[in-house]
């Protein structure tokens, strides 16, 4: 059951990857990468249950944090032209 859910999520990530490749402006690409990253969080949590290793949840939490920080860093750079 979790196996099939993981496969569906990977297919959805490929669908979003189309937007990341084609996206006319840079914001489109960052939006698509953010969506893929949030799907990866779910994928890590699911794979923890598929391989019966619940410690994967810590990695999922950390990945969610890193994904958010990447988007915020892009926004700051775009708005101010520097990262401090």
């Amino acid at each position: 059951m979790f196996y099939w859910a993981a496969i569906i999520i990977i297919l959805c990530a490929m669908l979003v990857l189309y937007r990341a490749i084609k996206g006319p402006i840079i914001c489109d690409r960052v939006l698509a990468i953010n969506a893929i990253g949030t799907k990866a969080v779910i994928l890590i949590a699911l794979s923890g249950y598929i391989f019966e290793r619940p410690h994967f949840l810590d990695i999922a939490l950390t990945y969610a944090l890193i994904n958010f920080i990447a988007t915020i860093a892009f926004q700051k750079y775009r708005e101010m032209g520097r990262l401090d």
Binding site: C27, V41, D58, A60, L61, L65, E79
Partner: peptide, 25 residues
């Protein structure tokens, strides 16, 4: 409890990231 923390985090973070991208655009 870890899963609950991830869910709360997603509901705070996802709208914020969306808003940040919209603001940048």
């Amino acid at each position: 409890i870890k899963l609950i923390i991830i869910v709360l985090f997603i509901f705070i973070v996802n709208p914020t990231a969306t808003h940040a991208l919209a603001n940048a655009a």
